[in-house]
Write a protein that binds this DNA or RNA. Structure first.
Length: 466
RNA sequence: GGCGCCAUAGCCAAGUGGUAAGGCGAAGGUCUGCAAAAUCUUUAUUCUCCAGUUCGAAUCUGGAUGGCGCCUCCA
């Protein structure tokens, strides 16, 4: 698989540190609020990365942290009159609800910053011992001038950054770009004991400490939003490589933003939609489809109209699957005909095209194209005369490829509720009697109750509306 | 000021040197008691614009225009 590495700015062949295994660290949410649709993008696209690598036979360890201590957490907890811990517990639970709805699988490990103080303190101590960090009045700073590789990820250099004049110049820092690794306690803030007194970790350090704990000094893939590239990921590299003396990450993957009217969506800008709210209007899978319809590195515009398009698009997949299952339930056991053999061969070609697209830096839009080719070919080629074997074959392929994308996760309903079944049966009777008025009334009733009715060669088909 | 990204049909979106995938929408046809679903046909002689390289460019180079991001908490 080729992966676009943000650091080299090129696509590179994925060669894991340990053959057959892939370690991924994904920057997770700061749990001070429900997550918004913009936060959902990395969760979804990198969930797909994990699913795809698993599909390709890799043993994947996926680590996604919860940032449960920082300025925003403290501020929000104070506003709510609860502790930072209570706030974190609450929104971690809410995270699992929304992520679950979106089909985002729980990570192998979901470490919390506050539960890794020992590892964080150890890392900061190491940095001080090695001379890469220094303490001033209970604060510890990383000395950016001591790390020659500083800027290798973002392409920034310290001089230009200083010229940017957006960094507060604090006298205590050796260099303007130095960043806090440990912050001395301020009144009213939660704090942990450390060699430098009571305090809490700065940003960046938790990810270095937790990734090392679960994935080792050097691991394969680190993911996150483009905005994390600098300074967060740059700083992770600096502190991790200085502490271990080893390369930190082999491949950096960064997703593009979700925009509203071409402007970045963010909590701070206030122009965001929470997943919780969108889920009241749309199905979670529609959101997934929307996210996967473009390449993960491209910016995409969010709007209700776009999700509606994604819904229509996804419906085609569901309709095809349900129709194939319907055909299968009526099909006969028979050897594959020459035509069916040829069709099955084309299906493998589409599946190969799907993998090729995914192999190319996870091109989900292209992969979806292959999926729709399967659907069209199946619709054209297969019918009530098709045998069980070929139907099962294409259905298995379709479902397993969709599973890689986390689509088609809703199972077809097994049987109908009694009242619906009664209406359906009545309609069959009405149609036998050619009582079209009655049968149309029943179809309208079923539609009003959320069920679609189709008359096929094998009889009436009633499905819950998508 | 520094570092980057993007521009393809009514909408969304692949395609990175060989003659424009796919989805949505729209129009017409087939099928159907009527529908639905499906399917067929039509919907970009052309990829923001201008030069250049090449037998050949949406794809490479230079320039222009327009839009966006990071450098400050951020996915």
């Amino acid at each position: 698989m080729q992966i676009y590495n943000s650091q080299s700015r090129k696509k590179e062949e994925l060669v894991p540190v340990h053959p057959g295994k892939v370690g991924i660290y994904a920057c997770g949410p700061t749990v001070y609020n429900y997550f918004h649709i913009g936060n959902a993008r990395p969760f979804i696209v990198f969930d797909v990365l994990r699913r795809y690598l698993t599909h390709r036979g890799f043993d994947v360890t996926f680590v996604q942290n919860f940032t449960d201590i920082d300025d925003k957490m403290i501020k929000r907890a104070n506003e709510e009159g609860i502790t930072v811990k209570e706030l974190g517990d609450r929104f971690i639970a809410e995270y699992y609800k929304d992520a679950g709805a979106l089909g985002i699988r729980p990570a192998t490990v979901h470490p919390r910053a506050t539960e890794h103080m020992a590892q964080i303190i150890e890392l900061v101590s190491t940095l001080i011992e090695k001379g890469y960090a220094y303490e001033v009045n209970g604060d510890v700073y990383f000395d950016t001038a001591k790390f020659p590789g500083y800027g290798k990820l973002s392409g920034q250099n310290l001089e230009d950054l200083e010229a940017g004049a957006r960094i507060d110049v604090e006298d205590v820092k050796h260099n303007p770009g130095d960043f806090a690794r440990w912050k001395a306690q301020k009144p009213g803030e939660p704090a942990w004991e450390s060699p430098w007194g009571m305090g809490r970790p700065g940003w960046h350090i938790e990810c270095s400490a937790m990734s090392r704990t679960y994935l080792g000094d050097t691991f394969d893939i680190h993911t996150g939003g483009k905005d994390l590239l600098f300074p967060h990921h740059e700083n992770e590299i600096a502190q991790s490589e200085c502490a271990t003396g080893k390369p930190y990450v082999k491949y950096w993957m960064h997703n593009g933003f979700i925009n509203i009217d071409n402007e970045k969506m963010s909590k701070s800008a206030g122009n965001f939609f929470t997943v919780r709210d969108i889920l009241k209007e749309f199905d979670a899978e529609d959101i997934r489809m929307f996210m996967l319809s473009a390449h993960y590195r491209s910016p995409i515009n969010f709007s209700r109209d776009m999700v509606a398009q994604a819904h229509a698009s996804l419906s085609r997949l569901y309709t095809a699957r349900d129709h194939l299952q319907f055909l299968l339930s009526h099909a006969a056991e028979q050897p594959m005909s020459a035509e069916e053999e040829a069709f099955a061969a084309r299906i493998s070609d589409y599946a190969a095209r799907f993998d090729a697209a995914m192999d190319d830096d996870m091109n989900t839009a292209d992969a979806l194209g292959a999926l729709f080719e399967i659907v069209r070919d199946a619709n054209v080629t297969l019918n009530e005369k098709s045998g069980k074997a070929v139907l099962q074959n294409v259905l298995d392929t379709l479902i397993s490829l969709c599973d890689v994308l986390g689509l088609l996760m809703k199972k077809a309903e097994n049987g109908l509720p009694a009242d619906i079944q009664q209406l359906a049966d009545d309609r069959v009777t009405a149609r036998k009697e050619k009582n079209w008025k009655r049968s149309d009334e029943l179809r309208d009733q079923l539609k009003a109750l959320g069920y679609t009715v189709e008359d096929t060669a094998q009889g009436q088909k009633v499905n819950k509306a998508l």
